[in-house]
């Protein structure tokens, strides 16, 4: 039987792993929606959060490019990344 209705702000997921260095800190975990799964990347210091599906992740893996490092990078073009904006 499928899981119970989930509040999107508090998706069920795996234990997070943290990745940090002197420049940035992110917390990453796999989350489960009712019908599928995504990779959640949270940047607590910047109070932002994004949940990427496999095709988006594959695209990042294939096309990684220095442009992604620009300060305005917000994932694909219409995706807000603040917790409130998503």
């Amino acid at each position: 039987m499928a899981e119970r209705d989930t509040d999107e702000r508090d998706l069920r997921g795996e234990d997070p792993v943290e990745i940090a260095n002197e420049f940035a800190f992110v917390r990453v975990r796999k989350v489960h929606t009712r019908n599928g799964e995504r990779l959640e990347i949270e940047a607590p210091r910047r109070r932002t959060l994004i949940r990427l599906d496999p095709l988006e992740l594959e695209t990042i893996a294939c096309n990684f490019d220095e442009r992604l490092l620009g300060p305005d990078f917000k994932g694909s073009d219409d995706r807000g990344t603040t917790e409130n904006g998503r």
């Binding site: 989930t6 999107e8 998706l11 929606t33 009712r34 019908n35 995504r38 949940r51």
Partner: peptide
């Protein structure tokens, strides 16, 4: 609606 509670959920 409860079948697709999260963004990206589809049926």
């Amino acid at each position: 609606e409860s079948e697709i509670p999260a963004r990206g959920d589809y049926v």
